[in-house]
Amino acid sequence: MKKFSFLVLFLTFCTGQAFSQVLEVESFSTKITELPQALLLDVRTAGEFGGGHLPKARNIDFRSEAFGQEVDKLDKSKPVLIYCLSGGRSAQAAELMRSKGFQVTELKGGYLKWTTKMMPLEGVPAVQHDAAWSLTDFEKLAKENDAVVVDFYAKWCAPCLKMMPMVDKLAGEYKGKVTVIKVEADGNQAILQAHGIDEIPSFLVFRQGKLIQKTSGFREEPKLKELFDQSIGTIQ
């Protein structure tokens, strides 16, 4: 009986190991080549996917209400290679899919890490990107000013584009009080990774060099104003 129990535990451990792979970019790329029958799954938003993705990837937004239903339609006999922007959402999605019986391999560091390695992409729109920041310059500016709001955006991101006029308006209203730093996701992977930004749009709020708020997703103007007020200490 003890031997049988040990065998069950051993097999469970081995199976879990096989189903819980998290691979670096190079190994993940090799896996794509080795498993042409696999489903390459991008679990970012449709907007993020529209800004570029791994070749032949399929998009199912992990944060959509229909994610579970869409997953249930997939073939469990096929291995799944999964990624998101930096690895957070794909890890959660992978855990859910494994609980449903899928064999899932994750891309460590996600789309950001993939692009830093200059790996192949598909569906990247032809847009003029803003000048990239150096991580050193960004950190210096964020820490040397008393009140800072950082806006992480992308030109393919509809919520980002909708908020831009509101951010600019508030930047004018708080001129001299709050420093606004705009960071385009494309070309600034080092900054996104350093601050754990795994979704666009996102905002960071610094007060006297200390990070006090991190938030993601679309915000109406009153909610955006709260970030500016937090940076100067009007609200906690």
Score class of each variant (00 low, 15 high):
residue 2 K to R: 09
residue 4 F to V: 08
residue 7 L to Q: 07
residue 10 F to V: 05
residue 11 L to I: 13
residue 15 T to S: 13
residue 16 G to F: 12
residue 17 Q to R: 11
residue 21 Q to V: 10
residue 21 Q to K: 14
residue 26 E to H: 12
residue 26 E to K: 15
residue 32 I to N: 05
residue 34 E to D: 14
residue 36 P to L: 02
residue 36 P to E: 00
residue 39 L to D: 05
residue 39 L to W: 02
residue 43 V to C: 06
residue 46 A to H: 08
residue 48 E to R: 07
residue 54 L to P: 04
residue 55 P to V: 03
residue 56 K to S: 11
residue 59 N to D: 09
residue 59 N to E: 04
residue 64 S to T: 01
residue 64 S to C: 00
residue 69 Q to P: 01
residue 70 E to Q: 15
residue 71 V to K: 03
residue 73 K to T: 10
residue 75 D to N: 13
residue 78 K to F: 09
residue 79 P to L: 03
residue 82 I to H: 08
residue 82 I to M: 10
residue 83 Y to G: 03
residue 84 C to E: 08
residue 86 S to W: 03
residue 87 G to A: 04
residue 94 A to N: 08
residue 99 S to G: 15
residue 105 T to F: 13
residue 107 L to A: 12
residue 107 L to G: 12
residue 109 G to Y: 11
residue 111 Y to V: 08
residue 112 L to P: 09
residue 116 T to M: 15
residue 118 M to D: 15
residue 118 M to N: 15
residue 119 M to D: 06
residue 120 P to D: 11
residue 120 P to R: 11
residue 125 P to A: 11
residue 131 A to D: 10
residue 134 S to Q: 05
residue 135 L to D: 05
residue 137 D to F: 06
residue 138 F to A: 03
residue 139 E to A: 05
residue 140 K to Y: 05
residue 140 K to D: 09
residue 145 N to H: 10
residue 148 V to E: 00
residue 152 F to S: 03
residue 157 C to F: 01
residue 158 A to W: 03
residue 159 P to S: 09
residue 159 P to D: 04
residue 160 C to R: 03
residue 163 M to N: 08
residue 169 K to G: 01
residue 170 L to G: 01
residue 173 E to R: 08
residue 178 V to N: 00
residue 179 T to C: 00
residue 182 K to Y: 00
residue 188 N to Y: 07
residue 195 H to L: 10
residue 200 I to G: 14
residue 202 S to W: 09
residue 213 Q to F: 04
residue 214 K to R: 15
residue 218 F to P: 12
residue 221 E to C: 10
residue 226 E to Q: 12
residue 236 Q to S: 13
